[in-house]
Amino acid sequence: MLALQILIDGFAISTLYALGALGFTLIFGVSGVLNLAHGGLLVVAAMIAWYVGTSLGYGADWGALAGLGAAIGAALLTYGGVVRPIERSRAIPPRERELFVLTATLLWGVMIQEALAYAFTDSPVTVQPLIGGTIGILGVRTPINELLIAIIAWAVMGCLWLLVNRTKIGKRLLAASINPRALTLLGFELGTIYLTVWLIYGVLAGIAGVLLGSFLGTGSDYIPDLTGSAFTIVVLGGLGSVSGTLMAAYVVGYIETLTAYLISPSLRDVPALFLLIIVLYVRPQGLLGRR
């Protein structure tokens, strides 16, 4: 019974972690950007979904849609207003671009956090779930919303896989991640490709933000934790590796759940931190990362 509990519960939380980190790893894989405002995008989506769905009273569906739109807008703004100016700047040496993107997105995340706190205060809220109620799985009472989240998350990840591996756009994205110079030589406009990937990133962040917000709640204070958690999982899995991210999300999710069930809920995030240190020390490129 307990084993089944842990299995189901761990699955739900791990799937959320995976979904939350997916966009982060994609955007790094393709364009080499570590977006430290990532948590900000997730919370913008969730907050707008709550505001439209609950506060204005348009219901869960319209709320989710509005949240998705807000995340896409925020992602494009991140690219156009923060990342692109740095990438195009002649004054920044290419070797240091990474640090500038890190610092700039960090500041951008702080701005999002402060703006949300100003508009909605920092007290947390919950996005209305698309479906309420619970069902029993072999005697374990499980909220339907939890199942729905898992299904949507896997569907989204499946779509992403198809997009990357089976379509022309996907092939270009892949090429851009491996050798951007060659792609430009072939006459493709890198700018369009990056714009596309930021658009996809916005969609991913929007879906993840709304779903996370319905299960875990949301609030401007969640932003640093969400960024940190995505960062941890992505580095543990290997930067830019989508399958590594999935694996890492499940490892971290299950370790935390096991700790919470078997040791103590107050220590739930400690073992995962130690694991991270050990893995990075033994295998610096992460579980499935390329060097």
């Binding site: 919470a260 103590s264 107050s266 220590l267 739930r268």
Partner: peptide, 17 residues
Amino acid sequence: NIRFAPNTTDFTPIYQK
């Protein structure tokens, strides 16, 4: 008497216990 970390996000294990 169950104490949990203030940054806990998933309360299922605690409620089950």
